[in-house]
Nucleic acid binder design. Structure first.
Lengths: 245, 245
DNA sequence: CGTCTGGTTGATACGACTCAAATTTGGTGG
DNA sequence: CCACCAAATTTGAGTCGTATCAACCAGACG
């Protein structure tokens, strides 16, 4: 199967054989990060673009008194901050959720790729714009939705993102987040997340057990979450020809 | 005085005379938008990059039942979505808060600018990364801060951004937002915003009346908000040489 | 088999919401 | 310049969603 990044970029545009080969070669190094370890911390100088090859990670910010907000999740095929190296210091941290396989990409390598492959450059722009769109949707999520809608929305988003990189089918996917992670991502307490998950189970919208998620009826869950997929911008031409659904 | 955009980009890097001239010429057209009108709506196809020359605008998203979240404010010198034209449809709307003067920039014009002025290109990248950082901070804001901290934080952010484009000095600035706008931006109700503003006034952290904001002691307000300015990335080399403080 | 992390339950508290009405402000036309 | 109206702000009373605190339970693991 094609690597996650290729699948992800092809959600935006079709890539040629050459494009795909170039994308596959972008990350020469790969390293393992243990679960719950940080890849990089707030205040540090960003040097590489991190590409998630396997596992889940998160971007988070903390307040001086310890309150913590997860502001993004990363799944395979996601970059943590394209172009961050332009900034002088990280304003947030990136932490591993599960065991990670990460590719570190240098500025030079990225510049070379974009210089030679305009279609890939476009696709990378798209990925960066989609990440911004996701961040906006999260602001809407914590700002306006109820706990029930909020968690439902997050589950649908993650499911759909995993689906585009081939890691979710038929309503099933791995789900390594703890209720604490969900709490930090939704601005709720772990206790309330627990009770809300029970409600979602009671309503037969999800089954969640032992790090596996099952969504029996995605449309019903989307309705409950008021989920509008437009912000993921998966609407490229000829998408109806794609498989993977 | 230099136009807002130039001031803003120079918060990142020093620009040459040529760079500044090129930036000043980027928007050939300019049009007026009445307060409370939309520049562009969710679902529409983005064609131009909008540059705010005068006035305040906001980016917002709505849920089917009418709940509304403002996910960003724009002040003079801000772009609404650099590079959006890559996407097929808007996933949010942009609305005028006060009377706007807007520059519409075509894709071609932007491509020409970035092709010829690498320093400007860098600066535009920076501006786009800072906007993402602001969006993340907003997620933290609505997710973790109390109403009091949340409003304080927003006021500090807006003050600092206005300051970098020369529109705020000595703790004073224009402030065209209604309490309703503040509510939609912070995920609170207008009633609660009202009571919280009264608390902030009582604590002598702000004076806010007739669309003017005065912050008697910025450091005290920043403390109350747990405001850490790192996410605005204003820390370029030689910033201590700059005036405007 | 003990320890630990993650999940679950119960009781109570409080921050923010809702609804409804009054008051002030700002703009507009006569 | 005043009368009028709409928009924005303010106030009060009552309610509710979510937080807090404190146990307790269940697998996973060495």
């Amino acid at each position: 199967m094609a690597p996650a990044l290729t699948l992800r970029l092809q959600a935006f545009t079709r890539l040629s054989e050459d494009d795909r080969a170039a994308v596959a070669k972008i990350s020469k190094t790969r390293r393992v990060v243990a679960p719950r370890r940080d890849l990089i911390r707030e205040g540090e100088v960003p040097r590489y673009i991190h590409l998630i090859l396997e596992g889940w990670a998160c971007r988070y910010k903390t307040l001086p008194d310890g309150r913590r907000q997860i502001v993004a999740f990363f799944v395979p095929g996601d970059f943590c901050d394209l172009n961050v190296y332009i900034l002088k210091a990280m304003d947030h941290s990136i932490g591993a959720i599960s065991r990670l396989l990460v590719g570190d990409i240098s500025r030079d390598d990225m510049d070379k790729l974009t210089a030679d492959y305009p279609r890939v450059t476009q696709a990378l722009w798209w990925e960066s714009l989609v990440n911004s769109a996701i961040q906006r949707e999260w602001t809407l999520n914590v700002g306006q939705r109820t706990a029930y809608e909020r968690i439902a929305h997050l589950l649908v988003e993650l499911y759909m993102r995993l689906n585009t990189v081939g890691l979710a089918q038929n309503g099933n996917c791995d789900f390594p987040l703890t209720q604490n992670d969900l709490a930090d991502a939704t601005g709720l307490t772990a206790v309330h997340v627990n009770r809300t998950l029970q409600e979602l189970r009671r309503d037969k919208l999800i089954e969640l057990d032992r790090r596996r998620l099952h969504i029996p009826d995605l449309d019903k869950l989307m309705d409950a979450a008021m989920f509008n997929p437009n912000y993921l911008h998966l609407d490229h031409e000829g998408r109806h020809l794609d498989s993977n659904h």
